[in-house]
Write a protein that binds this DNA or RNA. Sequence first.
DNA 1: CGCTAGGCGCTATAACTTCTAACGGCCGCA
DNA 2: TGCGGCCGTTAGAAGTTATAGCGCCTAGCG
Lengths: 225, 225
Amino acid sequence: MARADADTQASTPRERYRAQVREEIKERAREQIATAGASALSLNAIAKQLGMSGPALYRYFAGRDELITALVRDAYRSLADTLGAAAAAGPDPARLAHALRDWALSDPHRYFLVYGTPIPGYHAPEDTTAIADEVMTVLLDACTTLDADRPATPFGTHLQEHRTWAEGHPAPPAALHRALAFWTRLHGVLSLELAGHFTGMGFDPARYFAAELESLTAPLSEPPA
Amino acid sequence: MARADADTQASTPRERYRAQVREEIKERAREQIATAGASALSLNAIAKQLGMSGPALYRYFAGRDELITALVRDAYRSLADTLGAAAAAGPDPARLAHALRDWALSDPHRYFLVYGTPIPGYHAPEDTTAIADEVMTVLLDACTTLDADRPATPFGTHLQEHRTWAEGHPAPPAALHRALAFWTRLHGVLSLELAGHFTGMGFDPARYFAAELESLTAPLSEPPA
DNA sequence: CGCTAGGCGCTATAACTTCTAACGGCCGCA
DNA sequence: TGCGGCCGTTAGAAGTTATAGCGCCTAGCG
């Protein structure tokens, strides 16, 4: 679970207390987001829930934006840890996919903190892009074992020539292409499922996810239909 | 373009004026969303831009929610019209895909109004689900011409047994599967691209979109990598 | 042509939000 | 044991959504 947040480890009792309160604030924020959405997050309400009044929260977070940023970073971290743990059990893409789906379903709002509608003014801090790289590396590892000596697709060669996102990774073109497809196709399914766009359509999202996964792990072919 | 909104056509001069003001309010709202995001939409600011003050807007929209709902419905309508127009030029899935991408790129925020992070409390009005059906029908038409007599995939047979989303449509199982994949895969690419998750990765989003599209239109195979 | 009812926009107000400023008390460290 | 710094407080400014009630102006009817 890798629950050792960078916040939690502290030396002095003051810092320890501070980290604890920060964590509790984030917990309440998560609850609030789950019930009313990220846009309705109210610092005042959180403070009231914690028994302290209004501006006290500003000792812990510079403002609403910084609180949300912290939540986004935690979500990214949680995703990377989850996929990392799954990868540790074996570099199987299917295992990764199901870990991703379980992670997404276990807390949809957390998923949307990472992959949801972007906020125009908001710029992700550098460390989140580092975590994003981490995620891509895990994916690339799994795909590299899968198509070690697969011929390159046309788009794969384009990726080979523009692989700043896989700078130091030894993945061949086919693996680059597959990793990218892995990411976007599974996101396509999960994002629509979590947003409720499948409700009332009748079919089983889990089975469709499995079908898409199969199109991703199949040795070479597998049509969409 | 199908710019004849249901609002615009009115008989009495009063209703005409009212519809015009409503349209202008929505226009300003769109501008504001484009620059600051939907969550930062301010009725007060809109009113100020229109030269009238605050509560006057409530004559035209019951509140922030109803304004956003109207914008969502317009966005849905625009999407359905765009795809419908593309389909009228021929039931080619590739044409539909490019129409979709052009539509998405021409106004990313409009795309996220339809497919973005859902707001927990918010329930889409019935007519939007009707429009969603309309979109799916266009997709199913295109896919039906493509695999009229294609053998059913395993998941395709599941879809065949749970096709409440394609109730009256004559699409065969293979077409059902392909239409669904069309939707989710292209959404996967577009959603990540519009949200900026591809920036800095180096490759060309348009080429990747084309590659995914090819995986969707290929007669039977085409691997991800 | 004139009169009236209703839509329209206004101000005032309430309740809410984020966030800054200044004050007091407690806690931990030396 | 002292004292510096962190913490939480209240007060307040500026913003938001939304309601209430007032007048004007106009469209439409007699």
